[in-house]
Amino acid sequence: MSAPISQRLQRWFRPRRGWVIAVPLLWLTLFFLLPFGIVLKISLSEAAIAIPPYSAIVNVGAETVSLVVSFSNYLFLMSDSLYVAAYWGSLKIAFVATLACLLIGYPMAYAMARAPAHWQLVLLLLVMLPSWTSFLIRVYAWMGILSNNGLINNTLLWLGLIDSPIRMMNTNFAVILGIVYAYLPFMILPLYANLTRLDGSLLEAASDLGSRSFNTFLKVTLPLSKGGIIAGSMLVFIPAVGEYVIPELLGGPNTVMIGKVLWEEFFNNRDWPVASALAMVMLALLLIPIALFHRYQSRELKE
């Protein structure tokens, strides 16, 4: 226990602490942060028929190093109404779907949080279970239900309520329905987590002070669950904006969503620079929602 040994140990321990921090930090920097830099770089280059299909930004000549930065991809996005419509359509559909999720999910989360203790775990598992199965298959389920000779139309025809099938597949309605269905558990989970922490005596205090239950909800419960509402909404809204599978399977020719457009630019047109520019603009649009989510999440982690 003499001083030299402990000092040696400390010197040996200090850098190790650094290593423990470095491992996750380096992994995420390399495979999460750095890729965005590359996307940005490629979005500033020109498409070319080559492998990989874009021109180099930095040209190392015999004596000079020239930097060719091109904003043409971004200008192209602005000029073509298809892209603007796709961004606008994505935001609109994601917004409506998020709102619908909130309106359905909030009462569900509220009922779960107020349920008897031994029921809560069962209800939570019931809500989360679908999200553990398969996203793709849950979207696929609606194809059989919504199509012209699907379950709903067949039932309605058989009941004689309609003469010809209602077109539900390949519409924006189907896309919104699909998003609500797929993302509902992610709305309920943070809301439930927030509402269970709500102190029941607060509600009792409010009613003791003469507040009616709906008023109590508006003045006490709702403001206190703001964090859960933000987290749940962002968990639905942000991925929904970039959604590809749902518009591809349930949407129609009128459904233009940016995730689908990006996919097609990349895989069908093999225009990597335009796809990169599309991703950068989408990221810029989502920066505020992502920051909002991050702020909520880090506050949650601090508590």
Partner: peptide
């Protein structure tokens, strides 16, 4: 970097990783 992937649209993550 730990919280961002939770909400990052998959097309962006996929594209950026491929380019990497």
């Amino acid at each position: 970097m730990v919280t961002a992937p939770l909400v990052m649209p998959e097309v962006i993550t996929g594209l950026s990783l491929l380019l990497l």
